[in-house]
Nucleic acid binder design. Sequence first.
DNA 1: AATTGTAGCAACCGCGAAGTT
DNA 2: AAACTTCGCGGTTGCTACAAT
Length: 165
Amino acid sequence: MYCGRMAAHMGWGIIEEEGWRKGPWTSEEDRLLIEYVRLHGEGRWNSVARLAGLKRNGKSCRLRWVNYLRPDLKRGQITPHEESIILELHARWGNRWSTIARSLPGRTDNEIKNYWRTHFKKKAKVPSDASDKGQNTRLLRRATISSSPAATTTATAAATTIAAD
DNA sequence: AATTGTAGCAACCGCGAAGTT
DNA sequence: AAACTTCGCGGTTGCTACAAT
């Protein structure tokens, strides 16, 4: 989270060829995006530029909102309890970050992904079989989502149990 | 004290799924 | 029904701060 302001000097590409700004968000941009969502709700990200005067493409806006500006985000350090859930669910499902995130209210897939990578990746060469990379992962997503409510509950319960232990 | 290495995180990209017209 | 647009995911990068030498 750095110490508050870290977008002081953005060192990388500022304006893209098509006119889209890139790189770290300024507090002014954040304000515009927050105001946009307040007025129009989440979604329609591609029209943010038009309706809010933000020189960002929809993808960038959505990412910023979902990972940083959403009011229901928890922020702050991952708790030991949350960590155990992450470990448990990752052991079950691998890098299915968004699915894992659904079991951790206020946490984003990006946050969980970053956390796991920085804390565990180097140590564990992916314990189980990492042969599931690529297409299978993608194709399995729908099925996983379909069965996720029950699975989520079960796994969450398991993780909770372990954590409580 | 200065330089090089590492950690951690915000944000980017490509691509496929989902939605729209 | 097909073409086109938007969304969402997972992997990766680029940058800053901090640690080590």
